[in-house]
Every structure is written in C-alpha cells, then in structure tokens.
Design a protein around this nucleic acid. Structure first.
Lengths: 237, 237
DNA sequence: CAGCTCATGTGAACGGCTTTTACATGAGCC
DNA sequence: GGCTCATGTAAAAGCCGTTCACATGAGCTG
C-alpha cells in the first residue's frame, strides 16, 4: 500500500501516478456492487478522478479491463486453492473438502472476481494468457483428483482423474453460481451452500468407492470411524 | 404462424400488428448471437422495423423484455423436462438420466433462453411470476428425486429428496454453464458434456446406494445386469 | 356509415456511455 | 537545461435507453 498518491480525491497533478491500479480497484468495487454488466468504464474513471478518456492509456477497451480482472482473479483463485489443498495434508479427503469450501468462499467473498472469471461472457479462448491462468487454477483441482484417484480402493476400477476433476469443478461451480452469492439469484435452500456441496462431494466420492465416514483425526490413516453414524447429509434439516 | 403481417420488412401501415411477438423473437435471435449483454433494445426495434421508442408500449424497459424471455424459457424448460421425465417410465433411473440429457440439450439448443434464465443477472426474487415459473421447472427435478429417493435400498438411510434435487440441479447447471455451449467459454474436454454429466450422476447415485449398472431392458425390474462390466465412466477416453 | 376513443407507433430530445483524435503536461533522462 | 514520450485532457461522433408530445388508425357505439 505505498501508493504515491492517495486514492481518488486527494489533490494530484496532471498525472495520476497509479491509474491502472486505481482503475482495477474501482472496477472491482463497481462489479461487486452492480455485476459485470452494470459496471461502466466511465464510472471507473470518475471514481479514479480522471477524464473518461484516460483509461484508454492503460486498457485497449472495456473488455480488456474485465479480462485483466479475470486474470488476477484466476491468479488469486489458484493461490487460494493451493493453500486450501496444502498438498493433501493432513489426509487427502479432508484436504479435498477444504478445497471445495475454499471454492465457495472465493465465489462469495470475491463476487467481482468470480463474475469476471465465469460470468462476464468473455470468450475465454480469445486470450491465451487468460486461458493459461484459468488452466493453472484448474490444475490444482486436477492434482487433487489425481491424488484421490491414486488411493482408490483396489477392488474397483480406478476412475480417470481428469474426469473426477471435471466433476468436482462442475459441482462447485454449479452450487456457487446457483446458490453461492447472497445478493443475486437467491433461492431458498434447506441448508448452507457449503453443506450442500460437502454432502454432494461426499456422496460422489462414496460412489467411487472411497470411504467417506467422518474422518477420525488428523492422521492420514483411513481407519474405521468411531460411533458417528451421520451420513453425508447429517446437516440437512 | 398466422401472423397478420409478415415479419419485418414487408410493407405495413402505422401499426405493426404483432410487435410484442416480433420483439421477443428478435431478442432471442440477438441474445443467442451476442449474449444477453450484447443484446440491445434498439437493435430489436430495428429488426422489427419500428422506431426505438415503440418497444416501450410493450415492455416497461429492457430488463422487462429479458425477464419475459426468461419466463418463457422456464415454461419451455418445464415442458421439456416433464416430457423427458415421462413420469419415470420405463424405469426411474433411465428416466432420470433422460432428464439430465434434456437439461443439457436445452442449454445447448436454446442458449438465448438459458442465458436469460440463469446468466442475465436479473434479480430472480424481484419478479414473483418469474420465480414461480422457475420453481415449477425445478419441481420436475424435485419430483423425480422424490421418486428416486423412495426406492432407495432399504439398508441405507433414505436421502432427503430435496437435497438430491439440488445436487442434481447443481451438477447439471455446472456442466451446462462450464462446458455446455459450443461458442463461449469453450474448454477442452476428454468427453462430451452429456457423457460427463451422465457419469457424474451415476457415480452420485451409486454413492447413495442405488444400483447403477447398465439397465437390462425397459422393464422397471431392477435385476442384476448382464455381463457389461463398464462402470459409469465407460465412455471416457 | 359517422364519429369517438384508446392502444399503438413516431420524432425529437436528453443524458450517459464508448471510443477516437488532437492537444497539453510534466517526469525522467541526457 | 532541454528533449522526449508516457500519460493525462477536451471535444466530438455515434450509439443506447428512456421520455414526452403528438400522429395514426382499429374497433366500438350508435
């Protein structure tokens, strides 16, 4: 936070000094308030205290600004997922669930990033660096799926990790985009999005033959659980 | 198709005669081409051959037009799902899978409807009739889940049908919105969205204790399958 | 058929947005 | 000290959404 000029209204000369950052920040504010459609290039400029033409020195057009935000979003997303996955500690299933929760937390706490990344209608394949960032984020989920697949019970055919990763991603995105954000598209739920997704993933993993009873402790040993008889939907009302 | 005037350019008097329909149709065309954000009220008017102010005789504003489209979308969606479900014939699991395929087919073949329904950023709860239409569509999925839950194997605790319905919905929406449409947000897949979703749902159902081997025939008897050893991911590459 | 009425369409206008162009400023470098 | 170029501004064109006063004519009433 060592900006040379305080953001916005502070007296500043002809040159802003940090316009690109200020515009990205303003856009994030605006998008989180009014969605990516409601966000306006001119508004961001106004919020940064510059003329409507100034942003064009830093972004080819409005779409490029949104793409920049999506790019940063994927980077933060990747970092968050990496941290949640924590290389599968303390055990694979626990870490996997933590990734699911992190996914929802990101969608809820960074709605502007999430919208820019998944709901802005930008053609993903038009921007190679954007697609690369997106794939790096997905790679975390895929790596986690790989580890999970590796310890599939020997009796069953091993599921393809890529498919598992896509399944998990679609569940997470489905829950996040239908029920995840408080403001828009609110629909009544009998349980929290987090619990809904957790149950969904646990049932899915059980369908693949994984033991999904409550994990006993922190140790990666997959033992029989104690007397906790609650299934994956223990928290449903 | 008994429109009094042929659509569009045909010589017509001061009054269009079918403007509301023509506008909805034009909007569908435009949205399917350029997304709900790219769609323009003025464009729709132009396409219908009227002045930019004319649409305001039929819709309070642009959002109301989009809401109208979403409304119709939910109605068509409900009808399509009802037809696919076919009251659970020939057997519950087969019918259930048909519903999943119908979901994806709708998202792919009616991208304009789908966008208006789920990606337009309209506040769903602001419009009661819209929300009602949305709930009627969801009710089909819920009814199917109810039937499925009813025949859960006796050994296991019965899953709440509402939760199952939400899970299925989130899977379907997740797959549809991440991988479903050809144009936008294309990501490489090792299998078709349909196969991806089918495998996902089958694994999930198996996690609930349902027998999900290949169904033997049309009879609703749930017998042991023949020698088909393919799991739910038989089609993955 | 005459006349009235009201739904439906028009034209002009306002303000806002995006984007471009010519011009202004001043930060950093020689 | 002076040059240069990135970065800002002002003005303008073209589009859009929306509103308002006004025009038209379809359909009813008698």
């Amino acid at each position: 936070m060592s900006w040379r000029k305080d953001q916005g209204r502070a007296e500043r000369g002809y040159h802003h000094g940090n316009l690109k950052e200020a515009l990205l920040q303003a856009a994030l504010d605006l998008i989180s308030k009014k969605g990516p459609a409601g966000f306006t290039f001119a508004d961001a400029a106004r919020m940064a205290g510059v003329s409507p033409a100034a942003p064009y020195r830093h972004f080819r057009d409005r779409d490029e600004l949104i793409a920049s935000i999506a790019q940063r979003g994927f980077e933060q997303f990747e970092s968050l997922l990496t941290q949640a996955w924590d290389d599968g500690r303390p055990d694979t299933v626990t870490a996997f669930e933590r990734v699911g929760k992190a996914y929802l937390a990101f969608a809820r706490e960074e709605p502007a990033f999430y919208s820019a990344m998944f709901e802005s209608g930008l053609p993903v394949d038009s921007n190679p660096t954007l697609m690369a960032a997106s794939e790096r984020a997905f790679a975390i989920i895929r790596a986690a799926a790989e580890r999970l697949a590796a310890l599939a019970p020997p009796g069953m055919p091993r599921p393809p990790a890529m498919m598992m990763a896509l399944h998990i991603w679609s569940m997470s995105h489905g829950v996040a985009s239908l029920f995840g954000r408080g403001d828009a598209a609110r629909r009544k739920l009998p349980m929290s999005p987090e619990d809904l997704l957790e149950a969904e993933v646990l049932i899915y993993l059980r369908g693949l033959g994984f033991p999904t009873e409550r994990r006993p402790g922190a140790a990666p040993t997959d033992e029989k659980p104690s007397g906790d008889r609650s299934g994956p939907w223990g928290k449903a009302k």
